[in-house]
């Protein structure tokens, strides 16, 4: 019995010639007593968003962590541009940006400092560019306050600013909509649309519709095997 399967291809009306960026083949993962997924495969070309959905506890987060390389799958292989990510770990890490359940910045530092730190781990940027991004996610008014006083939604926006500035081709986002107001949710949809238009690609785990243009969208529905 296959634990979870299915790649949706609604966006692929014409047989496209786009390069395949990410390939997963035969992934299998056990957690404790449960097999979360097995024989899970998909491939993702540039300019596409993979929407991972499924009930709570079906292994969406675990799948995303496997794709990042944080968790080793029991079986199976993940390839980035045709090379196994075990062989090109650093190249692959430069190519993607990860947003998990945790926001990934320090509560003692201000939004501006956190953004500067997070970006400087990846590349050099101009302070103006960073300020512009802070404005884009609607944080310019609170950019100099320590992050611990920000609301949960504002923290999420800061994490999104980090993703925007990462210049990564692949975004891996776990429940990015959490705590966001409707305006923030639209902002993510716009972000994703623009990212795809520029040849980027994204994997998003979410319960709701992403609001992304249909031609970019692909689906991966995970079954609960518990």
């Amino acid at each position: 019995m296959p634990g979870a399967a299915g790649t949706g291809g609604e966006g692929m009306l014409s047989k496209d010639t786009r390069e395949i960026l990410l390939q997963a083949e035969g992934l299998k993962l056990w957690r404790g007593e449960r097999c979360l997924f097995r024989a899970l495969s998909f491939e993702l070309p540039e300019g596409a968003v993979l929407h991972v959905s499924g009930a709570n506890g079906c292994g969406k987060t675990s799948l995303l962590r496997v794709l990042c390389g944080l968790t080793e799958p029991e079986e199976g292989e993940i390839r980035w541009r045709g090379r196994s990510i075990c062989r090109c770990r650093e190249d692959f890490q430069h190519a993607f940006a990860w947003l998990g359940h945790l926001h990934g910045f320090k509560a003692e530092l201000s939004a501006r400092e956190n953004l500067a730190f997070s970006v400087s781990l990846r590349r050099e940027t101009d302070p103006d560019v960073r300020n512009e991004t802070l404005g884009q996610v609607g944080l310019d008014a609170v950019a100099d306050l320590p992050c611990r006083v920000l609301s949960a939604g504002q923290k999420r926006r800061l994490s999104l600013a980090m993703i925007l500035l990462s210049a990564a081709q692949l975004w891996i986002l776990d429940e990015p909509f959490t705590n966001l107001d409707p305006k923030g949710r639209n902002m993510i949809a716009d972000m994703l649309d623009r990212h795809c238009a520029n040849g980027g690609t994204a994997i998003v785990a979410a319960h709701q519709d992403l609001g992304v243009e249909q031609r970019y969208l692909r689906h991966l529905e995970m079954e609960d095997t518990g």
Binding site: L70, E90, Q93, W98, H101, H103, G104, F105, S118, R122
Partner: peptide, 18 residues
């Protein structure tokens, strides 16, 4: 522990640096 708790540790591990 504090970096682990707020997710900064994940970001460091995945930053592409050694």
């Amino acid at each position: 522990r504090s970096d682990y708790g707020d997710g900064s540790l994940e970001q460091l591990v995945l930053s592409g640096h050694s």
